[in-house]
Design a binder for these strands. Structure first.
Length: 274
DNA sequence: GATAATGTTCGATC
DNA sequence: AGATCGAACATTAT
């Protein structure tokens, strides 16, 4: 999303911002509208799942798409999509709309020199895409939580969501219930490596489109074709010669998928093997 | 009509 | 303090 947006917007100015649904703004909608007018983006950044646009006057525009939010580039005369929440008009005449059926997504405007903490990013740990193995190792050591919950905790590492958490643990051969602090050093290295690899692959495949996600140009991602466990409950494990059947469970309140034969480092909490 | 969904936050309870 | 759980948020699709 960050790369597509940087390409589309570039050095063009925002000529207007329209808040279609007040709920999308965390903070003051009028401040956002007034603060964006006439500004251009100095830097297109991102931390975890949050887009960070640094403006030329020191202001900041943050956006978190949550479950179903997406940014769409509109053709010149194209009508707004049915769930438009925010519309940004550019000096090129083009418009970018934040479309979000479930209305969980949020945008936040921070004026230049703001003293208040940024609501969308202030609790985030370091970014997961280029996470440092030593940082992951230190965080793992301190926590007894299930690995699945560990990966979803955005204060530890920012950016791993439910789909990628399942895929990362499968590739590591680690059971999702394994307590974080029990990993051996080889497993720690493997986990940190797969976090980086799986996320990079997700980016290369332009995301995972199960139903809602679209690129800025409205195209579906392709990583859903690469999923090995997510959403595959009852189906055969894809690992050559495994013969296991993918199971679904709920960990940290989220659907979790794993192969009971490939992922067995449960340290006593794994299901009976028979 | 019931269920589940790519995410986060808050309150209650251990 | 940490963890854990459920509920809440809101809408759509199956």
């Amino acid at each position: 999303m960050r790369r597509d947006l940087a390409e589309l917007i570039g050095r063009r100015r925002f000529v207007a911002a329209e808040v279609v649904d007040l709920k999308v703004v965390a903070g003051d909608p009028a401040a956002l509208v007034g603060g964006l007018a006439g500004r251009r983006v100095r830097e297109f950044g991102r931390l975890g799942k949050v887009l960070q646009l640094a403006l030329d006057d020191g202001g900041l525009l943050l956006l978190h798409p949550r479950m179903t939010g997406r940014l769409l580039a509109l053709a010149p005369a194209e009508p707004l999509p049915p769930h438009a929440r925010l519309v940004l008009s550019l000096s090129s005449g083009r418009r970018v709309v934040f479309d979000d059926p479930r209305r969980f997504g949020r945008v936040e405007y921070c004026p230049p020199g703001a003293t208040e903490p940024q609501r969308l990013t202030c609790r985030l740990g370091p970014d997961a895409l280029d996470c440092d193995t030593a940082v992951v190792a230190a965080a793992l050591r301190r926590r007894r939580v299930a690995l699945k919950a560990f990966l979803l905790d955005q204060t530890v590492l920012a950016g791993v969501g439910n789909i990628y958490a399942c895929e990362i643990l499968f590739r590591c051969g680690l059971h999702p219930l394994t307590p974080a602090c029990t990993l051996r050093s080889a497993e720690v290295e493997r986990l940190a490596g797969e976090i980086r690899t799986v996320l990079a692959e997700g980016v290369a495949y332009r995301g995972t489109t199960l139903a809602d996600y679209r690129t800025l140009q409205g195209e579906s991602g392709a990583f859903q074709q690469r999923l090995q466990v997510y959403g595959r409950a009852g189906e055969a494990c894809l690992q050559e010669g495994c013969g296991g059947v993918i199971e679904r469970s709920v960990i940290a309140g989220r659907s979790t998928y794993h192969c009971p034969r490939c992922q067995r480092s449960g340290r006593g909490r794994r299901p009976a093997t028979g």
